[in-house]
């Protein structure tokens, strides 16, 4: 299956320049979710750079990332692998068609006790 998502798409969504990476592995050395992931943070950088986007999009690894940003914080080259993982996740969501709800539904849902974060994540849930 081909998702037609290119390296350029992921780089544009994330704002990351993968060429800055020197493959020291500090991101994967620091990652608390390492054992849960099929592809590790440094592999995301490598695989995005070389266009292996489909494999990443099909992998459960994108949901195992805790978005703790430890890799981003400690990267000596400021590559920001966490943003790449988030971008792949975004690409998957965008492929899934419509969101659960539209922006117009939000005012009616707003309630003091309901955290706004919940609405935002509901936006991200896709139909399929």
């Amino acid at each position: 299956m081909s998702n037609n998502i290119t390296t350029e798409d992921i780089l544009r969504i994330s704002g990351v320049d993968t060429r800055k990476c020197m493959f020291c592995g500090k991101c994967s050395g620091t990652c608390p979710a390492f054992d849960e992931m099929e592809y590790h943070p440094h592999q995301f950088v490598y695989m995005v750079q070389w266009g292996m986007i489909d494999k990443l999009m099909e992998s459960k690894s994108i949901y195992k990332c805790l978005t703790c940003f430890a890799c981003l914080e400690r990267c000596p080259r400021n590559v920001q692998p966490a943003k790449l993982i988030e971008a792949v996740r975004q690409a998957v969501i965008r492929q899934q068609g419509m969101n659960h709800m539209t922006e117009n539904d939000i005012p009616g849902l707003l309630e003091d006790k309901l955290p706004q974060q919940a609405i935002v994540s509901a936006m991200r849930k896709y139909k399929k």
């Binding site: 020291c24 592995g25 990652c31």
Partner: peptide
Amino acid sequence: YIKGMVGK
């Protein structure tokens, strides 16, 4: 010798 970096 281990190729890689220490995270923490």
